[in-house]
Design a binder for these strands. Structure first.
Lengths: 342, 342
DNA sequence: TATTAGCACTCGAACAAGGAGAGTGCTAAT
DNA sequence: ATTAGCACTCTCCTTGTTCGAGTGCTAATA
């Protein structure tokens, strides 16, 4: 669809624009990429590229600027021969992340920091979705009078805890019996399954004749709705150093979206179901307030099951090559951690 | 030091400036606060106030703008007759926060959201400092091969958990014995104390002849350094709607400071040792990058012992009266929650 | 003596005009 | 098919000008 030379020019324009913002003119192209063509020829080609919607002129007699579809073409073409994942990234990542396996959340927090540090854009990571995690065991511990601490231990080292109130005071033995019952009943199931089962059982009143079961159900009902993932965001100040982030209005929109973690969460949950890095360029973004930016996201897995996602948000004038690689490697690395750390 | 009339004028200027930015002139003062003085008189007084350092002229023949010490005087004078805490705040606060007692962190997250929503500035809250918390009980639970989950239960419902690796595989009974030993030994002590004791014991080799003790110590050493508090920040996008936040450079500085949670943490830890809301106006701020903003912070307590802090960051042109009240009430409310919820 | 009215003065914001420069599109030559 | 040349366009920057708000000072006033 695009002849070889046009492709080269498009790529040149985009790379020039990425390395420094501002319309790029025909002369600049010839200077940086001496392909043996004169500015005039370049101009003709650029004009064609504009007709095809890959470039855009801010105004007559300014240089050209890539459009979203220009970037899209560039990224797709790039995908064909993406450079081998830079092993420097990989080693730095693993070195930095190695230290902090103890706590999933601080691990993912560091991951988002790394993403932003290495990309100079905004780094995001989402903690594993509890719903699809399998329950390894539940622990019930007396806490205060009429309160017990419930500790969920799952396969992913994600431990959720919650204090709940109970009607009657319960001894340690009572709690152990209860926990034993719940473990036998639900151990090995996913939290989502458990939640569903509980809802069904609660509806079925016959089961509730047994005190033990009743109590267990009541506890479970209180505890298993816990499934909000945490989300970690870093590097907003870093991103603000870019000349692209000069319009307060846009920044505000972006921040509002980011601060409303639910939005980002549900966005990235969709990502989790896909494979390999997804790239949303400008207007391709599902969220209005992100339409001025680009988002690169990838899921990470435990084994083959996707359990969470990481992402980068940056200007559409983004170093896609580097950013995609970074997201890809990081996701793979986190997958490794979750899959082989047992 | 300041006669009554000058005080009135200063207050008028500040209030006008707070309600809309931009230098305020003598005529504007007479218009909004008809005290029966002509603009000319006001001008003379304002000139005096400028000599005293409470006001400042951006340039000749512009109106006056309050200086940091102007605000300071205003705030101090205000403190004398602060209006009774608005009960509307109080009730809204309690209503919103009532729901979420289950989890300390999400409780404090909501608190920071509320602070920013009600003030339209940036809201911050810090989770209880674990160091001064007393250990209620430790639980050790087998997790995977050679790994155990350690759960710290403290008096504040702050539960910290961590996965640690151990040299040898341990049965449930082993762990129970171990936990029993640790509980008996350290239950009721503050985490800081425990940490100190452990360090001392580790140095003293004689104690280490007993296997049980050795193992316990090794676990404790891994677990008790957990004392980083969490910090919750909301409303950055909200604050960006203010005309004061129009300079990208300043915003970037602010965000950098905020993103580096350690800095804020140690700042607020100092606050924890003080009483009632502290107000830092502009240059009074200890952190350079906050010197363009104002910070209002107050500790919250468990009983009489301060365990954490909340804060608001806004422009120096801040509605101090409202903001101080808000911080004050919120801190008191959180104190109530922590003190009487048992 | 404290206050006020009047007036000249200052300074910034907003707007207009003009020049410089970069880049284009078109046409004719190669 | 490519290129050189040229006229044209548009932004950016600078400069000049006006307008208005607000001051400081001085003289008049209660």
């Amino acid at each position: 669809m695009l002849d070889d030379r046009s492709k080269q020019i498009l790529q040149a324009v985009i790379q020039l624009y990425i390395s420094s913002p501002g319309p790029v003119g025909s002369r600049a192209v010839t200077k940086k990429f001496p392909i043996g063509l004169s500015p005039a020829t370049i101009r003709n080609i650029m004009s064609d590229l504009e007709d095809m919607g890959f470039l855009r002129q801010p105004h007559t007699s300014a240089g050209r600027v890539p459009t979203d579809s220009g970037y899209r073409y560039y990224v797709d073409a790039l995908a064909a021969d993406r450079p081998d994942p830079d092993t420097e990234f990989a080693s730095e990542l693993s070195r930095k992340l190695e230290l902090i396996r103890t706590d999933v959340n601080s691990f993912l927090d560091s991951a988002s920091r790394m993403l932003s540090e290495l990309s100079h854009y905004i780094g995001i990571s989402v903690s594993p979705n509890a719903g699809q995690t399998t329950l390894s065991r539940i622990e019930l511990v007396p806490y205060r009078k009429n309160q017990i601490a419930v500790i969920l231990i799952t396969d992913e080292a994600v431990i959720r805890n919650r204090i709940i109130s109970v009607d009657q005071e319960m001894s340690r033995e009572d709690l152990n019996r209860l926990a034993g019952y719940i473990n036998e009943r639900f151990g090995g199931h996913t939290l989502d399954d458990i939640r569903k089962t509980i809802l069904e059982e609660m509806a079925d009143e016959r089961v509730l004749c047994d005190d033990l079961i009743t109590e267990a159900m009541s506890i479970c009902r209180n505890v298993f709705p816990v499934s909000e993932s945490d989300i970690f965001i870093s590097g907003v100040s870093e991103a603000l150093t870019l000349p692209d982030f000069c319009d307060i209005g846009r920044i505000r929109g972006l921040l509002r979206t980011i601060e409303d973690k639910h939005v980002i969460l549900s966005l990235l949950e969709k990502i989790s179901e896909t494979d390999s890095p997804q790239v949303f360029i400008g207007s391709e973004n599902p969220l209005d307030e992100l339409k001025q930016f680009s988002l690169i996201a990838a899921p990470y897995r435990e084994g083959s099951r996707p359990i969470g996602a990481i992402a980068i948000i940056g200007p559409t004038r983004m170093n896609y090559s580097q950013a995609i690689t970074l997201v890809d490697i990081t996701a793979k690395f986190i997958t490794d951690i979750f899959s082989y750390s047992r």
